[in-house]
Design a protein around this nucleic acid. Sequence first.
RNA 1: GCUCACAUAGCUCAGUCGGCAGAGCGCAUCCUUGGUAAGGAUGAGGUCACCGGUUCGAUUCCGGUUGUGAGCUCCA
Length: 647
Amino acid sequence: MIQVSWQDEKASLPEGATFLDVKKAFGWKNDVLMVLVDGKPRELRDKVPGDCSVEPLTFRDEAARNALRHSTAHILAQAVKRLYPETRLGIGPSIEDGFYYDFDAPVAFGPDELEKIEEEMKRIISENEPIVREFVEKAEARKIFQERNEPYKLEILEEIPDGEPISIYRQGEFVDLCSGPHVPSTGYVKAMKLLNVAGAYWRGNEKNPMLQRIYGTSFMDQKELDDYLVRLEEIKKRDHRKLGKDLDLFSIEEEGGPGLVYWHPKGAIIREIIEDFWRKEHRKRGYQLVYTPHIAKLDLWKVSGHWNWYKENMYSPMVIDEVEYLLKPMNCPFHILIFKGDTRSYRDLPIKYGELGTVYRYERSGVLHGMLRVRGFTQDDAHIFCRPDQLEDELVGVLDLASFMLETFGYDEYYCMLSVRDPENKEKYIGDDEVWETAENALERALQRKGLNYKIDPGEAKFYGPAIDIKVKDAVGRLWQGPTIQVDFNLPERFDISYIGEDGEKHRPVIIHRTVLGTMERFIGGLIEHYAGAFPLWLAPVQMRVIPVSEKQSDYAQKVTESLRNQGYRVECDLGSEKIGYKIRKAQLEKIPYMLVVGSREREEGTLSVRHRSLGDLGTMRLDEFVEKAREEVEKKLLDSIFSVTR
RNA sequence: GCUCACAUAGCUCAGUCGGCAGAGCGCAUCCUUGGUAAGGAUGAGGUCACCGGUUCGAUUCCGGUUGUGAGCUCCA
């Protein structure tokens, strides 16, 4: 007999019992998909290895959720094989929020095919086929997949070291090479949907054949699936490309070329405010702001090394007076030239050059995406030239600036990744051990001093130095690339820059490349989605709109508008002949923070009826009362209306 | 760049199994002067992305180009 315990309950089971028996013994419900045995997840069909304590795992646990989705991927593959037997199977893992399976199929899967496949999947689910694991010898596995004519499976099989048992899964007539884990039978999948098809290279390599990848998701009940689909819709509504058009923020013009952004007046004002804020904050923190050219001689890019390792992303040279010039893909060589233009003392350091530098990079056509992935963009770039002993303090300063900026925009959850050398391959990095160690330690201590949680990524460092990458979480829980801080030992060498130390000798400074917002395009594109287009008052292109109830109040409305405009607000007056309900709806759809309704009452009393886009009617107040509130809301860069806290 | 899909009015989208194109919103003019998410009427707007081919005839079918989307790969 085997003794199994769960919390304070115990059960005795015969030898050879499985966790399905454990499940029954403890009376667990059907939402239990896997078990945790001594801290390790096991599938329910596994035999109980001996006396142990167990914990049930449900859909809420990542391991169990992945197992369910992975099993759904197998159901998808089974359905495809039933409908299109000529199909060759690629791989089909679970992914965040769902699963996919790659197929080399004789037909192109379109919406009609997906529908048919989905129906077949539902049939397989209702058949409730047991999903059973088997371990076989490699030769046996080879035979199985040769018979089934599955070249991709055989390719994977051959990469498994000899002698290792091969794990395969069977459900009905379907067999897959798979290390699991899975749920016990196809009936466990209660709600599923296929979402889309896209091409995907076999094993992600563009030299390999392109397979058709079907994406889908599954849940334990229909409601959860429906909620997920609603969430997808909500994300779609926030799409910066849609909102950018609706709110007239920016466009990309076919006549102008792909990946090149046109900032319309309303988008431009948002950018201008953010840039002003950025400049002010940088000056405050000891940065000196510079402007540099858009092109430079090819030779400069040879010195910097870009011509060698970044060539694919750079536009072809243009010849000016018989000399070749390149459009800049980065700002660093320019800042270095400014640094180099004078003899620097150790007393001068750190020197921090900042620039909102517009760069151009060739991006393959298929990767372009709204404002988030473009070919011409403006980086909020800066380079800190410092002594090695200053590195840590400077990094703390950058982290401090980064967190201040992120929080100002309402990104209050973010994750830091520390990219360090691959300890196995130290020779592929430039710079000696000692310098690397100093730098990596400085980065890590800086993170600790700021009290930030971080994950260390060994081997993720670039060849020229370690880095911190910060990922930020937006209002709907998605992660975005945020600030990056990159230590560089390479460019100081290449440009042979130096400072004179206390000893009167030349020393090599370290360069920190850092960006806080990333690029104006990507950052503001992300902000549009983060705010769902409803920019806080300090950023809103139109902050308030004065709405007269009828034309009789036009004069008063215009007076109010003018007064607000003179006080520095971005304000409009709606003198249209429509009714007030219509004007309010229009202002709502434009996501204007404040609507100031003025009718005959307000005109007589010299007041405003204030309405906020999300709080609704806020009642009547004097203009100076409203202005005082608005001023505070703007000055404090509040994310929500000031009336929502004081009301 | 690759695979698949898509491209019709300023916007969102119908439509023509091949016979010189439609709605709603928006815009203009007029009527209406109204109190917190759509008052009414009239009107203007399109080389149906571009270039070729098939056809008596192409917005529709075919090929190419450009652009866009979902992904792959890459990335700020």
